[in-house]
Computed example of a mutant assay.
Amino acid sequence: MSISRRQTLFTLATASAASVLPQNSSASVTKSPAFVPCLNMSTIRGQKLGFVKELEIASKAGFRSVEIWIDSLQEYIKNGGTPAQALKILGDLGIKVENAIGFAPWIIDDDAARAKGVDQLKTEMELLAQIGCMRVATPSVGAQGPQAPRIDLLKAAERYRTILEISDQTKVIPQLELWGFSKNLNKLSEVMYVAIESGHPSARVLLDVYHLYKGGSSLDTLKLVGKPGVEIFHINDYPASLPKETITDADRVYPGDGIAPIAQILKTIKNPDRPIVLSLEVFNKTYYAQDALKVAKTGLEKINKAIAGV
């Protein structure tokens, strides 16, 4: 049987291509994880370890990502440390700072006080950028108490855009945080409205298992949050014995130790395009009385168990 010149060239080209491709392409492709375990330093904050020791504990426990508190970093610098030294410590420990917890009052109605809060946030964002932290939590600080006035959501959106525009220079993105106990921005619908109405492409929301429950947000509408809208998510749990009306921050427990529908939540927020950072945020006094390394290791085990199979 004769073989044409065209068939010969096709056969050679196919064989050549096959020789440089993996023999088992499905086995050779490493699938990106859907979730990245992260330690919010709130979880071991009660042990009063300080910035460096907290990082060391997180690394030793097996975390590669952390969520720091800005005041802890500021105290480290006040005592003689520098952002460059902090960055080196992070590199030596193999740790990435995914987000920072701060309390600048950027949303309040008082114009003068809000201007100071925005300046404070800008300074904090510039500091965070120096240690490679490109996100900062921005909840409704100063407008959360029961006596606080209700803030018009359109004004809140304008104020959120103001701090998002600062991120155009600093590259540190404010994550609009849901606080279920707050007078303002206590529901998923409110934070989503403010984020969308800001009209800024970097708008992101920071949600939390406990705060969704505390604020009474329906998990059936969580799926309406666009996948790019969530980059970091606070994971925790709550006990069956405490209704949302009386539960507090300190009542949060490890994921899996309560009744929260964590698997449902994780399946809803799962993003096929990029991993979601799952940051363990609890303020449990029982955990604060324990060895910090034990708490961190237990937390990582609980997160890994929660994400298994999701």
Rank of each mutant, 00 (worst) to 15 (best):
G256T: 02
Y160D: 00
T248P: 00
M192A: 07
G299I: 05
A260S: 10
V141T: 14
N79Q: 14
H200Y: 03
A86M: 06
Q85R: 06
P261T: 02
V310I: 15
P261S: 04
T246W: 04
N236Y: 01
S2G: 12
V205S: 04
L39I: 13
P201Q: 02
V136F: 11
I44G: 08
N284D: 09
T221Y: 04
E190K: 04
G50V: 08
V277M: 14
I44R: 09
S28R: 12
G46E: 09
I259P: 10
Q144Y: 11
Y210W: 14
K227C: 07
E98F: 01
E165C: 08
H200P: 05
T30N: 12
L178C: 06
I108F: 01
A250W: 09
E98C: 10
Y193N: 00
N79E: 14
Y160S: 00
A104D: 14
N24L: 10
S140L: 05
A157T: 12
L164I: 09
A34Y: 00
H200G: 01
G226F: 07
E177Y: 09
E56L: 02
S25Q: 10
Q290W: 14
R274G: 06
A157E: 11
T8S: 09
H200N: 01
Y238A: 07
S4E: 02
L153E: 07
D168Q: 12
I163S: 02
Q290V: 06
N184F: 11
I262R: 03
T30E: 14
K187C: 01
S32E: 15
S218W: 02
H234Y: 13
A143N: 09
S65W: 13
S217E: 06
K285F: 08
S25I: 15
A260R: 03
S217N: 09
L49R: 03
F51R: 03
A157S: 15
V172P: 08
P275K: 07
A100K: 02
L153G: 02
D237L: 04
D111F: 03
E231L: 08
H211K: 11
T248S: 12
I265R: 12
L293S: 03
T11L: 14
V295T: 13
R45P: 00
K122Y: 10
T82I: 08
L242Q: 11
D168K: 10
A34T: 07
N99K: 08
E190L: 02
I276R: 04
T298V: 04
V136H: 11
A203F: 08
E281C: 10
A240T: 11
R5C: 01
P201V: 00
F51M: 01
A115Q: 13
T30V: 15
A250L: 11
R6D: 10
L188F: 06
Y288T: 07
G91K: 15
W69R: 14
V230N: 07
V282G: 02
E281Q: 13
F10L: 14
V209I: 13
S167V: 06
G309F: 03
I173H: 00
S16W: 12
D291T: 11
K171E: 11
R6C: 00
G91A: 05
G258K: 05
G145A: 14
A250Q: 15
G226V: 06
L127E: 00
A156K: 01
R204V: 08
W179L: 15
P105R: 05
M1A: 08
